[in-house]
Lab assay of single mutants.
Amino acid sequence: GPREVTMKKGDILTLLNSTNKDWWKVEVNDRQGFVPAAYVKKLDSGTGKELVLALYDYQ
């Protein structure tokens, strides 16, 4: 199956793709996968990378 990404509340993840309104593709610890968009919030990183903050645990 697809590689699952797990996250804990407060984690910072790299946002790869947010074109789908329900599932965003993120990368964390060299793993890529989809997380519910409602579970993360975009951060203003000030760099080229888009980052998101995990609002809830997800696994």
Rank of each mutant, 00 (worst) to 15 (best):
P36F: 05
Y39E: 03
N20A: 06
N29W: 06
K49Y: 09
E4H: 15
W24H: 02
M7S: 01
K8I: 07
E27Y: 06
A37Q: 04
Y39T: 08
Y56H: 11
L51S: 07
D22H: 15
S45N: 13
W23K: 01
V5I: 15
V52G: 10
K21H: 09
K9F: 05
K8H: 08
V28M: 13
L16P: 01
K41P: 03
G33T: 08
Q32T: 13
E27C: 13
Y39S: 13
L55H: 01
V52S: 01
E50I: 13
V5K: 02
R31W: 15
T19L: 08
T47I: 11
L16C: 05
K25Q: 12
N17L: 07
G10S: 02
D57W: 04
W23Y: 05
K9A: 11
A37K: 05
L53W: 04
L51Y: 11
P36G: 03
G46F: 11
Y56V: 14
S45Q: 10
G46C: 12
F34W: 15
V26G: 00
G33W: 13
S18T: 09
N20M: 07
L15Y: 01
V35D: 02
D57Y: 05
N20V: 04
G10M: 02
R31N: 09
T47E: 13
L13K: 00
G1D: 11
Y56N: 09
D44L: 11
L43R: 01
M7D: 01
A37N: 03
K42A: 07
Y39I: 10
K25H: 10
Q32M: 10
K41V: 14
G48Y: 07
D11W: 06
D57I: 04
K9H: 05
A37D: 03
E4T: 15
Y58Q: 02
K42N: 05
L16H: 03
G46S: 12
Q32Y: 10
D44Y: 11
L55M: 08
D11M: 11
A54G: 03
V28Q: 11
D22W: 15
G33M: 15
K25W: 15
K41N: 05
L16T: 04
L13Q: 00
D11I: 03
R31A: 12
V52A: 08
G46K: 11
G48N: 09
G1C: 15
A38V: 08
S18I: 06
S18C: 11
L16N: 02
F34I: 06
L13I: 06
D57Q: 04
S18N: 08
A54K: 00
V52W: 05
D57G: 05
N29K: 08
T14Y: 09
T6F: 15
K25D: 03
S18D: 14
K8C: 10
N20E: 06
P36S: 03
D57L: 03
V35C: 04
L13M: 10
